[in-house]
Amino acid sequence: MNPDVQADIKDLDGTLSSIEAVADVPALRQEIDELSEQAGRPDLWDDVDAAQKITSRLAHAQGDLRRLDDLRGRLDDLPVLYELAEEEDDGSASSDADNERAKLRREIASLEVRTLLSGEYDQREALVTIRAEAGGVDAADFAEMLLRMYLRWAERHGYGTDVYDTSYAEEAGIKSATFAVHAPYAYGTLSVEQGTHRLVRISPFDNQGRRQTSFAGVEVAPVVETTDHVEIDEKELRVDVYRSSGPGGQGVNTTDSAVRLTHIPTGIVVSCQNERSQLQNKASAMMVLQAKLLARKKQEEQALMDSLKDGGSSWGNQMRNYVLHPYQQVKDLRTGLEQNNPSQVLDGEIDDFVEAGIRWRMQASDA
């Protein structure tokens, strides 16, 4: 076997072994056994919330183990592929082995990113809020494009999502939307997407076909768990109820079931209208509010830490450009990563940007 190929396989083996050590494969197998036992109990669904957490965690743990076992099996088979290609002097088989090695390198590098998620809330599920900013109707349309992008990303990975609230703009697009991503490490993964996203294109809403620049903001918060101490005084809340509405302001419910909560001390406003009952919507809105307050607390603590460092942190607010005219490009302003197929990115293929963002954040925190 070519010495360079041998060295590369050895390097891949070292990286995968490190990932397996961090994942603690024996403990993962034990957790799956314990969760499988819990999932098999006849009284499992007596507590629906607990049952959903158990089955969701079991599915994700089994998925993680399958992925690790698959990568290990394929990597162990790789030297055999090269030996067979050499024995048969088959250029096509050698090319197949090279392709498999390149594919393994990409997949192992992608999995390695998970080991960098070690923040306090990184393993939590995520709550994502998207808001239209400057740019009028184009900004509202862009916000809806980003909403679809993240929902498609979650769908590609098999992650469950719940859209809690969508505020539609009058002409097109959305003013804002809040949704949850139900997957371990969703917060740590998506938190690097927080910031201002910028779109440049020929506006489909401009009769003169002029180029328009518009902006949308993305906010990511960790889902609150029972161990968190996020107390909200009812006296500090204003509760408004109203009828749910759809695109163009059309009513989608005949009762005042939608709920808007305003946290007076911070000015944070959250809404929920996806449930049929006012009580359910209030409970969901309260969960979103708690998550936002937890995220604010985390940001304040980070700001304090940054203020103690020389020069502070330089995260910057504007983080990614999507250019559709006069050329096609998506560029991350923090990592410098560029892709020349915006349609793929806006269809949810954002893993390269997310992984680069996580690595960039790790390097920035170590600086």
Rank of each mutant, 00 (worst) to 15 (best):
M1T: 10
Q6W: 05
I9M: 15
T15H: 14
S17C: 11
A21M: 15
A21C: 08
V22T: 06
V22D: 11
A23Y: 05
A23G: 03
L28R: 15
L28T: 02
Q30R: 08
I32N: 08
E34R: 14
Q38G: 03
A39Q: 13
A39L: 12
G40V: 00
R41A: 05
R41W: 10
D46T: 01
D49S: 06
I54S: 04
H60K: 15
A61F: 10
Q62Y: 02
L65N: 09
R67M: 14
R67F: 05
R67L: 08
L68E: 07
L68Y: 09
L68P: 06
D69F: 13
L71Y: 09
L71S: 12
R72F: 05
L75P: 08
L75T: 07
L75V: 01
D76R: 01
D76E: 09
D76I: 03
D77M: 06
P79S: 06
L81E: 03
E86T: 03
E87K: 09
E88P: 06
S92G: 07
A93K: 08
A93Q: 08
A93C: 05
D98L: 12
N99C: 04
E107F: 04
E107Q: 15
T115L: 11
T115P: 14
L116K: 10
L116H: 07
Y121Q: 13
E125T: 02
V128K: 12
V128T: 12
I130D: 10
A132C: 02
G135A: 02
V137I: 14
D141H: 01
F142T: 07
M145F: 02
Y150R: 13
E155N: 11
H157C: 03
T166Q: 13
Y168G: 03
E171C: 10
A172T: 04
I174W: 00
I174Q: 04
F179C: 07
A183G: 14
P184F: 03
T189F: 08
S191V: 00
N207Q: 14
N207C: 07
G209L: 03
R210L: 01
E219M: 11
P222I: 12
V223Y: 10
V224S: 04
T226R: 15
T226D: 15
D228E: 12
E236L: 13
D240S: 12
Y242R: 15
R243Y: 00
S245D: 02
G246E: 06
G249E: 10
Q250Y: 02
Q250G: 04
Q250H: 14
T254A: 09
T254K: 15
V259L: 15
I268N: 05
V270H: 14
Q273Y: 02
Q280G: 07
Q280T: 02
V288S: 01
K298D: 10
K309G: 09
D310C: 11
R320I: 01
R320L: 07
L324P: 10
L324K: 02
H325S: 12
Y327G: 05
Y327C: 08
Q328Y: 03
V330I: 13
T335H: 08
N340C: 05
P342E: 00
P342A: 01
P342S: 00
S343F: 03
S343M: 10
R361D: 04
M362H: 05
A364W: 02
